[in-house]
Design a protein around this nucleic acid. Structure first.
Length: 568
RNA sequence: CGGAGCGUAGCGUAGCCCGGUAUCGCGCCAGUUUUGGGAACUGGAGGCCGCAGGUUCGAAUCCUGCCGUUCCGACCA
């Protein structure tokens, strides 16, 4: 490709609206332009990258027996009502105003519908179906360029099996394909245990690229012995020691004490918050859940969802008084007047005593609370969020918490959608069963963005792996010297003949320095620089973008050297 | 959805408090000289200052409403 015939609008200055590196560089390198919030146009250079990502995905999906489909984005409301997701999605689903249609945010329903009428015997199973297609989600707050957009490209795959063992097999195939895909795309990633209740399934793992630009927090160890999304992560933690002092509960005045920190200071235990049981009130349909955790712990709302289902939510500050008789800061497990409130506590507090917590009366707390004696109906669950520096449950490794970008997610869905839509098959005995499904997603643009987050420097992008839009950038440094130009043309033709993807900077009237800057910005892995001085001695220069190292070699060795570099 | 910020030429911006001819850089066009790390000089084009209303002799500037956009939070099957 000649740069004079390739639309590559690079920008020297940083775009004002971009914050994260990948967003800035995608705009500066001419990959994308924003149309409106969360919606981007893909320019030729960006499209080239995304198509390369898709090629890698297709190859790996086809390898595991995946069959490519292309489903519509428009989808009838009725279909979404059948699985209850029209309501579940709420505002996140785009609705067409002048037809009873939505823009599909995902495709479990549509694929299941095809399965329903066409996969009718156990002999038709298993199947792996996938597509690479545009998804629409009305995100409340798009951010970070293509990392969270309202329109984006997703590879979504679905497996259909007749047994749970077969589902495991389909799932494991995807897990391996995903590892291959992200490795080939040049990403460093973690495979973490993830929350699966949301999709109504069992096992679920996310593929996470460590990055400050990420929106997820993941828990990992140095040797990868444990990797989990923080939403469901567990760690080893000692229980609160029971003192058996048998002191009676005692209400005491705590004027203007709203936070655990203030309470610790007030009762003189600044350095030990363990026995300050922190209460939070959650609304779960028409009933309420009061949660207790140690003063320096936080409740994991995802873990609560695992116990109580997805409907549970934190009580709004203005409704707390009506429910419990006190505002946040004074709510507690004793003297609860509202029968709709049930009390649960983190496992760490199991049977603990001498606790301090709110008295359900503003500005009062109780001390000497013995959960075993005073709250007999209490139930214990793992509801705390783990913290960095804690040990894994086997006590062998220390955990670390870091931010990450979710580039892929695999789910064992089970029969939620096939049951809701009546997608069943007949077994060998002629009995009908719902098809057992899995669902598997990859964000195409996210792979490119995550790659840039992990592979860039102050000069620009550094492509590696198979998604580099070009393999070689050929730079003619002296367009005013005929011999240099004609040699450049010769090299360009030769590279094309050899099938090497080359971007030839053949622009006239542009200084060599300008071309070098552009080449660094768009991140082509290998630069071949043809200049008068080296050519005079029969030499050419090769620059490796990633390391910055330069090789001056005889022009006769150029092709061999390039082949050698490209094979690495 | 709650909070904060921003909206001036293709891009990045100054001016706004304290009302009076719209600033600068990049880019663009023409010419000359340049040509290995975002060249120099000369000349030039380009603006409903987000939109609507109000105050005023006069509004980019003050007031009101709306729209757009960014960030933090909430939310994110």
């Amino acid at each position: 490709m000649r740069l004079t015939q390739f639309f590559l609008p690079t920008i020297k200055e940083e775009p004002a609206d971009a914050v994260v590196a990948s967003h800035k560089l995608m705009i500066r390198s001419g990959m994308i332009r924003q149309l409106t919030s969360g919606v981007y146009s893909y320019l030729p250079f960006g499209l080239r990258v995304f198509k390369k990502v898709e090629k890698v995905i297709r190859e790996e999906m086809n390898t595991i027996g995946g069959q490519e489909f292309y489903l519509p984005a428009l989808s009838p409301n009725e279909l979404w009502s059948q699985t209850g997701r029209l309501e579940d999605y709420g505002d996140t689903i785009f609705r067409i105003k002048n037809r009873e249609l939505v823009l599909a945010p995902t495709h479990e329903e549509v694929f299941s519908t095809i399965a329903k009428s066409n996969l009718i015997s156990y002999k038709d199973l298993p199947q792996i179906w996938y597509q690479i297609q545009t998804k629409f989600r009305n995100e409340a707050r798009p951010r970070s360029g293509v990392l969270r957009g309202r329109q984006f490209t997703m590879k979504d795959a679905y497996s259909f099996d007749s047994t749970w063992e077969a589902l495991d097999e389909s799932y494991n195939k995807h897990a391996q394909a995903y590892r291959n895909i992200f490795t080939r795309c040049g990403l460093n990633f973690y495979v973490v245990t993830a929350f699966s209740g949301a999709m109504g399934g069992s096992d679920s793992e996310e593929f996470m690229v460590e990055s400050d630009a990420g929106e997820d927090n993941i828990v990992v160890t140095d040797n990868n012995s444990y990797c989990s999304n923080i939403e469901v992560a567990v760690s080893y933690i000692d229980k609160i020691e029971r003192k058996n002092s048998n002191l009676e509960p005692e209400e005491f005045h705590t004027p203007d004490i709203k936070t655990i920190e203030q309470l610790a200071k007030f009762v003189g235990t600044e350095n030990d918050w363990l026995r300050l049981a922190k209460s939070r009130l959650f609304v779960n349909g028409d009933s309420y859940v009061l949660t207790l955790v140690c003063g320096d712990d936080e409740v994991s709302e995802t873990k609560l969802q695992n116990v109580f289902g997805q409907g549970i939510r934190p009580g709004h500050p203005e409704e707390l008084m009506a429910i419990s008789g006190a505002d946040a800061g004074s709510i507690g497990p004793l003297k609860i007047s509202n029968p709709k409130i049930s009390v649960i506590a983190d496992l760490r507090l199991e049977d603990a005593d001498e606790l301090i917590s709110g008295a359900n009366k503003n500005d009062y707390h109780f001390k000497n609370i013995d959960l075993k004696r005073d709250v007999p109906s209490i139930r214990y669950y793992d509801i705390r969020t783990v913290k960095g520096g804690e040990l894994t449950t086997d006590k062998k490794d220390t955990i670390r918490i870091t931010k990450a970008i979710e580039v892929g997610h695999i789910f064992k869905l089970g029969t939620k959608y096939s049951e809701a839509l009546g997608s069943t098959f007949l077994d060998e005995q002629g009995n009908s069963h719902p098809i057992i499904m899995g669902s598997y997603g990859i964000g195409v643009e996210r792979i490119a963005a995550a790659h840039i987050e992990q592979n860039h420097d102050k000069f620009g992008i550094i492509w590696n792996g198979e998604i580099a839009p070009f393999q070689v950038q050929l730079i003619c440094a002296n367009t005013n010297i005929e011999s240099v130009v004609s040699f450049s043309e010769q090299v360009y033709n030769e590279l094309n003949e050899k099938g090497i993807e080359v971007l030839y900077d053949d622009r006239k009237e542009i200084s060599a320095g300008f071309k070098f800057k552009d080449a660094d910005l768009i991140g082509t892995p290998i630069h071949v620089i043809l200049g008068e001085k080296n050519l005079k001695n029969g030499n050419v220069e090769i620059k490796i973008r990633k390391s910055g190292e330069r090789h001056i070699i005889s022009k006769d060795d150029l092709m061999n050297k390039l082949q050698e570099l490209l094979n690495n």
